[in-house]
Computed example of a mutant assay.
Amino acid sequence: MEELRKLEQLHTTLTFMQSHNFVPSSTLDSNRFIANLILLLLQPCGELNLDMKFRLLSEYLPKISVSFLEEASQWIRFETDERDYQEVNDPSGKKDCLPLQINHEEVAMVGLEAMERANSTLEDFCRSYFMFHGVDIDIPLMIFKYFPVLAFTESYIYQLDGLNEKILSIPTEGDTSLAKEFEKMNYQCWAETFANMLEKDPFRPLLNVLELRGLLNDRIREEFRSGEEYWALERKLCRALTHKMEISIKDVMRAIHLKSFDYRVLNLLLYQLRGQEVNDLHMEFLSDSEFLVEISDDLMVSIIYSTPR
């Protein structure tokens, strides 16, 4: 996640530079260097504000020469992996300037965009499913009692779904902008990063959170595995369509059955949150209804795209 965040920040900075005609060089490496310098200046560092940072840079930059940097390189040993930072003693106790020593792959985090994307699903779940659990949606206290866990879980799922979509998104050909040039050159790196995230137990951080709260059980684990299988099938089918290859109807039907795994996760979580035994008849009914809804949605999309305009 940390690598992805850094790539996105660099991409945004390059786009910002181009929008202000601030492109000092035609070489990508030079532009990336300037972009990284801008990002460095924007990072918090104790009590320094932007004006103080700018004055420091103006004062000391003329004193930095090639020979000074060469001598500095003899004093400072860089690790081959720039992501590995050496711990530095900070007598002031301020750690603002130091990178946080956090293994982001082990921490369940969600972004604002994922929360916004999950919003419509959460609203639908509250309106359509709470009544099956005896929860009155007209009583805010009842909703917000369970909403944090449900919202965090659904947002995390949407975040992973966004990564799955990025794997299949190919930069537009023919766009020669600086940002697109950077995107094309790094597309393979992005794709590999996203694929690794999705293939190496992507739900583990979320499962850890649920387990610590005593909410995790085997059925919820199984539904998360269904989610991983669904994304794998989605990638397989999309690639087949992109390359005009034959697709398996069995794969399509399986994907449709798996697609609403998040609703099943939310239902199972709500049973756990309320301390109730799972009603298997209820879950079977919901699974069948979700399957019909998915088919209906796909048919509607097909009709819309096949209608002459």
Rank of each mutant, 00 (worst) to 15 (best):
L7S: 08
Q9M: 10
F16L: 11
N21Y: 10
T27F: 05
R32D: 03
A35W: 05
L41M: 14
E47A: 14
R55S: 13
S58M: 11
E59I: 02
Y60P: 01
P62D: 12
S67Q: 13
S73T: 13
P91C: 07
Q101N: 11
A108D: 09
M109C: 09
G111E: 07
L112H: 11
L112M: 09
R117S: 10
S120P: 00
D124R: 13
F125P: 05
S128H: 11
M131G: 05
F132W: 15
I143H: 01
Y146P: 00
P148F: 05
F152N: 02
E154I: 06
Q159N: 04
L160N: 03
D161L: 11
L163V: 06
I170K: 14
G174P: 05
K180N: 11
F182N: 04
E183C: 03
K184M: 10
W190H: 07
E192T: 08
N208V: 01
N208G: 06
V209S: 04
N217H: 12
E229V: 00
W231G: 00
W231I: 04
E234G: 02
K236S: 11
R239I: 07
T242V: 08
K250H: 09
A255K: 10
I256M: 10
I256A: 09
L268H: 06
L270E: 05
V278E: 09
F291G: 01
E294L: 04
I303T: 06
